[in-house]
């Protein structure tokens, strides 16, 4: 849930020192048993999507990609609505009429980047291209460093990080530097940015409203 679990296993450097370094992004330490551990600054917050309010217009996806990529796409949008629109997160089943999605109960589950405390994407990146943004704490891809290997895409339990097939560069939620464009352009207020504690409860808590928790049962931050 937070950075303390692995921080407790750190050797050499005091915890206070680790956090001071992490506040500026992320730093790596060697543990007593010789493993490398990264310590990440907590994100300022995360974007949460409300499946009850969403109307499936996908303006969030066009807003995301025009701002971040200068072109419009659904596949590389950092908020993922399109892929769940028809049949929900679980996909097509024989019981599709009762399941989520436009062909079922109409419920539309958008998945957002959780800006995880221990981001699998960042930990998996072999070239250190994913770091915590100094201003927002969002886990961001440095396009100049990214080699497009897809390790982040394979590692993310939520399927958010996506390699753009047109540029061979990974895309993931940047929080738009603190003013997320998807949030601003949602016509029903279904997408909101929450400070970290609230976001964490909404995304990972027992009463999580984001359908993303349906996707990988038992997964945690």
């Amino acid at each position: 849930m937070d950075t303390t679990k692995s921080a407790l296993r750190l050797a050499g450097t005091g915890l206070a020192g680790a956090f001071a370094a992490a506040a500026l992004g992320c730093v790596s330490f060697d543990t007593r048993d010789g493993k490398k551990v990264k310590v990440w600054a907590t994100s300022s917050g995360a974007i949460v999507h409300d499946p009850n309010l969403c109307v499936g217009c996908r303006r969030c996806e066009s807003a995301c990609t025009i701002k971040n990529d200068g072109k419009v796409s659904a596949y590389i949008s950092r908020i993922k609505v399109s892929r769940n629109l028809n049949y929900g997160v679980m996909g097509v089943t024989a019981a599709y009429q009762k399941a989520d999605g436009q062909h079922g109960n109409f419920r539309i589950v958008g998945e957002t980047c959780r800006q995880c405390s221990h981001p699998a994407c960042g930990d998996a990146c072999p070239v250190g291209a994913i770091t915590a943004d100094k201003k927002t704490g969002a886990r961001v891809v440095d396009a100049k460093k990214c080699v497009g290997c897809g390790a982040c895409q394979r590692a993310c339990p939520w399927g958010i990080a996506t390699v753009d097939p047109e540029t061979d560069t990974s895309t993931k939620c940047t929080l738009c530097g603190g003013d997320p464009n998807c949030v601003k352009n949602c016509p029903t207020g279904a997408i909101k940015f929450y400070p970290w504690e609230e976001a964490e409860a909404l995304l990972f808590g027992p009463d999580a409203t984001s359908g993303a928790t349906d996707a990988v049962s038992g997964a945690t931050a």
Partner: peptide
């Protein structure tokens, strides 16, 4: 009424979605 639906990139949702 469960929600209002419609088309891609349209903020005006004219399809009523009922249960």
């Amino acid at each position: 009424t469960v929600r209002m639906g419609g088309c891609a990139h349209c903020p005006i949702r004219c399809h009523a979605q009922l249960n």
